[in-house]
Amino acid sequence: MTGQRDRWAELTGGEAGEEYARRFARLVESGHDVHGEAAFCAALLKPAARVLDAGCGTGRIAIRLAELGHHCTGVDVDPSMLAVARREAPTQEWVLGDLARLDALDLKPCFDLVLAAGNVIPLLAPGTEPDVVRQLAAALCPGGLLVTGMGLDAAHLPLAEPPLTITEFDRWCTEAGLTLRQRCSTWSGDPYEEGCGYAVSVHSRPTT
């Protein structure tokens, strides 16, 4: 652990929940489909699967997956984001916690799918990224999937420059015992090519 604040907290001060929720409400009002991540994950899941939304924010994805019949737990380090999630879906499980210390949280093992969308990985505290990947991998059932979405350049990140490369991320996943199963450039499933500014990755944990 580095003891540093995560990049998200540095950007927002940990008080972005309401504004984040309003931004997506405006997108819905203007006719945008805001459920691309949920649809992508749902296509990978069997009915009534257990899902961990790691860095769940205001709960948008976990709430949608629950509507589709899955059992979802959301974890986030930002209380302002979780306050919105708890208001929108009070019966769902929302946990305040650091992803680098996921094993210290009172979560029921194990999950069929762990999701880290919305630039969760690039916005972690510097130096904690490999630890978080190991924690997310350890939360998976045998055969479970880690699904991530992240910007790889400044145009797809709220940062001046990307803090990691896709090669580094794949290495952390390999070290955590995961295998790359699929990679796209969008949540709609568009093909990924070298140099793409965004990557949606599906890594799997071995079945044994």
Rank of each mutant, 00 (worst) to 15 (best):
Q4I: 11
Q4T: 12
D6W: 08
L11F: 12
G17A: 06
A21W: 05
A25W: 14
L27Q: 15
V28C: 12
A39Y: 08
A48T: 14
T58E: 13
I63C: 04
L68E: 10
T73Y: 04
V77Y: 11
D78Q: 03
D78L: 00
L82D: 10
R87M: 09
A89C: 11
Q92N: 08
V95Y: 01
L99R: 01
D103I: 07
L107C: 09
K108H: 14
P109L: 02
P109Q: 01
C110E: 14
V114D: 00
A117Q: 00
A117I: 02
G118P: 05
V120R: 00
V120E: 03
P122S: 00
A125T: 04
A125Y: 02
T128R: 10
V133M: 01
V133I: 13
Q135W: 07
A139N: 03
A139E: 01
C141A: 15
G143D: 11
V147N: 06
T148M: 02
G151D: 07
A154D: 13
A155Q: 14
L159E: 11
A160S: 13
F169S: 02
F169I: 06
F169H: 04
F169A: 11
L178H: 04
L178G: 03
L180T: 12
L180Y: 09
Q182R: 13
T186L: 05
P191S: 06
E193F: 11
E193G: 07
E194K: 12
C196D: 15
C196F: 03
T207F: 04
T207E: 10
T208W: 03
